[in-house]
Design a protein around this nucleic acid. Structure first.
Lengths: 116, 116
DNA sequence: CTGTATCCTACTAGATACTG
DNA sequence: CAGTATCTAGTAGGATACAG
């Protein structure tokens, strides 16, 4: 979790950050953006470096927050598809300006973080 | 830190979250919004529950990211004033839609988090 | 293929006491 | 008033092996 917010929330941002507060969550939202549907393995490949355990964890939390939809196909071999709910898409839209801000100032931030 | 993003960032959101990823950071930004200038003790009161150590930590990180400005007045007793930089204000603006989203869905999120 | 089960580490944040 | 210095704890995240 990025931010360990305590209930009850002081303001809206608190609540939002509680939802996206996880090492991979915004990346998951990003990967599932705009109607994309991905299987577990695809998602795992899209987020290079994440372990199965952690990916599942974050997905389950996003599911509990109703921003990610999980659909199980009882086949052999098993198939599970992940996509955004409407709530998830609205979250992604709300995240856009922040992403734009980050993109714009990313170089500065990185240099401040890695003082040569 | 809310999200432990690793450099280099994959996208803008990564970078932005690295900046606001801290238990109290968005609350600090919030408190300093729109030209408000606050002294250390005022800030501490505004964020009820934060310890001095942690508050200083987060302030220093925000300062290093150039979103918070720290001004020291060499008086007795000492006075230090915190305010947002221009970058900080732009970050706050980028955060607004997320805050709005959180405000709108806060009830649902809370209930999902605290299953009765 | 899609997960579970363990075990482990690093780090963030907190409590508290003390200082210039 | 505005910090530092310690010490501690909880936990998010990670590595790896195994299961349905």
């Amino acid at each position: 979790m990025l931010v360990k917010s305590r209930l009850p929330y002081h303001c809206g941002i608190d609540a939002a950050i509680d939802v996206i507060g996880g090492r991979w969550k915004v990346l998951i939202l990003w990967a599932l953006d705009s109607g994309t549907t991905l299987r577990f393995a695809q998602l795992r490949r899209a987020l290079s470096g994440v372990s199965e355990k952690v990916l599942i964890q974050q997905l389950r939390e996003l599911e509990a927050d109703e921003v990610v939809h999980r659909e199980v196909f009882r086949e052999v071999p098993p198939r599970v598809e992940y996509s955004l709910t409407e709530l998830g898409q609205s979250l992604n839209e709300a995240l856009a300006p922040l992403g734009e801000w980050g993109r714009r100032h990313r170089a500065k931030i990185e240099s401040n973080r890695q003082p040569v």
